[in-house]
Nucleic acid binder design. Structure first.
Lengths: 353, 353
DNA sequence: CTGTTAGCGCCTTCAA
DNA sequence: TTGAAGGCGCTAACAG
């Protein structure tokens, strides 16, 4: 179907080896040395023949030969998620800059699906994998990693593995978020949402707990509403919380969707469009979006650098791939490396305070 | 590094051909026929050898041989975009179900970048491409298509090409959106945002114009605020609109981001948190999200089935790939096929009207 | 500086 | 039902 190296070689009147030398720059021997190992004259001949034929390299053939596909598999629990897509944007940009492509797939928030996809992706012989784990199970990642597949975990770490991770400083972030509420005088502060199987949720919970402890506050059990990371979870939790005799006056939302659900509940109960009144509780939410200024109860926001996280993860996986290529046999198993990005606290940008 | 067919064959005491026959089901000859062409006994031997060695197929080798990578390149103008990500979700699901993988890349809203990426992706020998064009330029797609690369355009069509497209019925959608405002009694209705280079924007504009014409209304030139598809564009346009002596009392927003920007402007000018008053203008916006109920000025929403669009596009590109494989030489160039998905109008779900 | 050659791992006729 | 063998398109020694 497509033209091959041989066609180009024929037209240019040289050998396929020469064509390859022209078209695989910075690879064999001299790195990107413009005057590599081919005379300017033949180089030109080859280039124009390439042009004339509209030649396109066959990636499969190159991959087979080089034992490297220049592709990174990226596995997310879901795609339609503001935070994840910012991460994806960062990853893609970084990978592309280094000549890699991103094979993106969704685990549908299911460990079973995750295992299937990871196997499929491993079968595609990608050079490495970037994954946001769907749960706290990590054996499938660990064993793939043990077999030599470079893997970097993103956003969520998995305990009991020695896998590299790039994530945010969730604990510190929620600590500061909670402290902001405390210094505004709130004392009855709830924590809403969070799958206990996810490291990010656990870390956020513990930052919250530490802030309360620092302030000498013993949280009532009913304030801690674990379970769920989605809109409907926030909605339900908010409903239950407000039914208490003596409900909290402030809340920390584990993430953006839960936050959204909580606000939805308030909207449904005493919609501001009807009563024109500000909500009676205040929310400090983890994760920002263009919409947070419109969430009436939102007082503080903890922002992660999602794009930065993606690009950091991209850098790291490429590093690992290169290390592997260089060291090769030296089983220089460095221990687990966890990169934590800072989280910043701010008010949503109402013009008026 | 990895185990090969040969390793498996050796361990199982059979030839590589036999192993291949076991592990490439539904391919050579009999489609998925459980009792294909290998005895149950040898089949078992092969399977257990495969297991024992932890054999993983080398995708590059298979691709080289089969001349098919089972990968679809997907090129979006940007990734961090609610609408696009829903589309991506639909695409990925559909592709995965058919055994394809998604190579996702961003054109950064730039035609130049788009050309680069498209070339890179074509070089990867993907089996087909799904793209949301960054502009009204389509030569690079057309020529790739002419060379035999199956391509389906998504969300935006490009005139002057004969490329298949899957998109929404934008014209009808905005027509109905505008009619909803008209039947509420609004007469001074503006249209805000929209790159004239994008078919979706043009179609939405024309639906708006048709609705006004139907109602016998001649729009004032100042009501039509073209330019831009992003938050900041909506913000700026809203500022200008409200400076008119006799400003519009209702507006149609070309998309979600522009809508968001318009609301932001209102928030900054007379934030509801301060005045507790409903905004003085009403917006009908194209595209929905979980946040639209929180946008104070939002009266109507036109919702596209973004996930459905993705899955439809996925189906279509796979169809085209199969057609190509079957017809092969028969140059049965069907003419351009445009699939249009319906757009539904609704009110954002305030509990109170 | 350039050509020859031998595979990378898999699939698929063609024979047996 | 199975094996032997050639080749998909590219690259990297090794010669020249």
């Amino acid at each position: 179907m497509g033209k091959t190296l041989k066609d180009v070689a024929l037209l240019a009147g040289v050998s396929t080896a020469t064509v390859s030398r022209v078209l695989a720059p910075g690879y064999s021997g001299a790195f990107n040395k413009a005057s590599s190992t081919v005379s300017e004259k033949t180089r030109m001949k080859v280039l124009s023949a390439t042009e004339e034929l509209g030649y396109r390299m066959n990636h499969a053939a190159r991959s087979l030969k080089r034992q490297s596909t220049m592709m990174i598999a990226v596995l997310f629990p879901e795609l339609a998620n503001d935070f994840f897509m910012d991460v994806a944007e960062g990853i893609e940009k970084e990978l592309y800059a280094e000549g890699y492509s991103m094979l993106l797939s969704s685990s549908l928030n299911s460990v079973e699906e995750e295992k299937k996809r990871i196997n499929m992706l491993a079968g595609r012989t990608v050079d490495g994998m970037l994954v946001i784990p769907a749960s706290s199970q990590g054996n499938h990642f660990q064993s793939l990693s043990d077999r030599g597949m470079p893997i970097v975990l993103v956003d969520r770490i998995v305990e009991g593995t020695n896998l590299d991770s790039v994530t945010s400083d969730n604990e510190e972030g929620t600590f500061n978020l909670t402290k902001a509420l405390l210094s505004d005088g709130f004392r009855r502060i709830a924590f809403v949402g969070g799958e206990i199987t996810l490291s990010s949720a656990r870390e956020r919970l513990s930052g919250y707990a530490r802030a309360l402890a620092d302030a000498g506050i013993e949280p009532e059990p009913s304030w801690i509403c674990l379970g769920g990371m989605k809109t409907e979870d926030g909605y339900k939790h908010m409903g239950k919380l407000l039914k208490n005799k003596n409900p909290p006056d402030a809340m920390v939302a584990v993430n953006l969707l839960v936050h959204l659900g909580m606000e939805r509940y308030l909207l449904d109960m005493n919609g501001f469009s009807e009563t024109n009144s500000k909500p009676s509780v205040v929310i400090a939410g983890f994760d920002e979006s263009g919409y947070t200024p419109f969430l009436p109860a939102c007082r503080y926001i903890a922002s992660q650098d999602a794009v930065g996280m993606g690009s950091r993860a991209g850098k790291r996986i490429i590093e690992k791939i290169r290390e592997k290529k260089n060291h090769k046999d030296e089983s220089k198993k460095d221990s687990e490396l966890i990169i934590r990005l800072p989280v910043t606290i701010s008010r949503p940008v109402y013009k008026t305070a």
